[in-house]
């Protein structure tokens, strides 16, 4: 399944806000079908790195490649816009605060982009919505507006919305951090399902248990650098760096 070890490639990523350097020369490869978790304290740059992959937060240096195409290549403005819109269609993103469109039903949230960008007819789009909402267990809430959904339900619709564009890669930016504890599991279940389907995923998370159970690889980031990376049982059970140990101790103590 890992036919392409450099499916996602980040080369020397660097990002500064003025004098503040939030990413310091980060390189990372993700193979097709691989699931990578990024953990670390807040302010470590993990969300910034994730958001650089689809250019929501453009890098100030370095390159991002997806499936052999450079995402952040230098082009004249108009051409770049067309290029980045096409790239983003291949990358699904799920946000901490769901960011569902409140003026659209669950179905419309899912169908809007495919209709606009892929020219799907109403019937095709509705069929697609049924498929995707069924996958996340929200078929019975298809005509609900987001205001009538719980946080977990909103996030599941947001995942369906991202999947409707048939992305090659899914990015999760603390997808369960804003949820009440009892709602976290329903979202995790959906993510596990995607993992079983070999979706390539990069997950920024605070949930060590979940990261340990679904991910192939864990990155620990602190102060803009990758401090440690490896398979979850190594990083979580037997970390080699003091900073990782300290973070895990604090974090696990806080979580309990």
């Amino acid at each position: 399944m890992t036919d392409n070890p450099e499916f996602v490639q980040i080369r020397h990523a660097q990002k500064s806000f003025g004098k503040l350097e939030v990413l310091k020369d980060i390189s990372l490869n993700v193979a097709r079908g691989q699931i990578v978790a990024i953990i670390g304290p807040s302010g470590s740059g993990k969300s910034t790195l994730l958001r650089a992959i689809n250019d929501l937060d453009p890098l100030t240096g370095g390159e991002v490649w997806l499936d052999g195409v450079q995402v952040n290549k230098t082009l004249p403005h108009r051409q770049y816009e067309a290029h980045i819109n096409a790239m983003r269609q291949q990358v699904g993103m799920v946000f901490q605060h769901f960011n569902l469109f409140p003026h659209m039903t669950a179905r419309e949230n899912v169908t809007m982009a495919p209709k606009m960008l892929k020219g799907l007819s109403n019937d095709e789009a509705d069929k697609l919505a049924e498929e995707q909402l069924e996958k996340v267990g929200m078929l019975d809430r298809m005509e609900y507006y987001p205001s009538r959904l719980s946080g977990g339900q909103k996030q599941r619709v947001a995942i369906a919305r991202a999947l409707a564009m048939k992305p090659k890669l899914m990015l999760f930016d603390e997808a369960t951090s804003a949820l009440d504890p009892e709602l976290v599991d329903e979202v995790n279940q959906v993510m596990k399902k995607l993992a079983e389907e070999h979706m390539t995923m990069i997950i920024v998370t605070h949930e060590m248990d979940f990261a340990a159970s679904v991910c192939d690889r864990v990155l620990f980031m602190d102060q803009g650098v990758v401090v440690e990376e490896g398979p979850p049982d190594v990083v979580f059970r037997n970390p080699s760096k003091d900073r990782t140990r300290e973070f895990l101790r604090k974090h696990l103590a806080g979580a309990k």
Binding site: L56, N85, R88, V91, G92, L100, A113, L117, A162
Partner: peptide
Amino acid sequence: EAARTVGL
């Protein structure tokens, strides 16, 4: 952001 990430 959400609209841009789906490719709009």
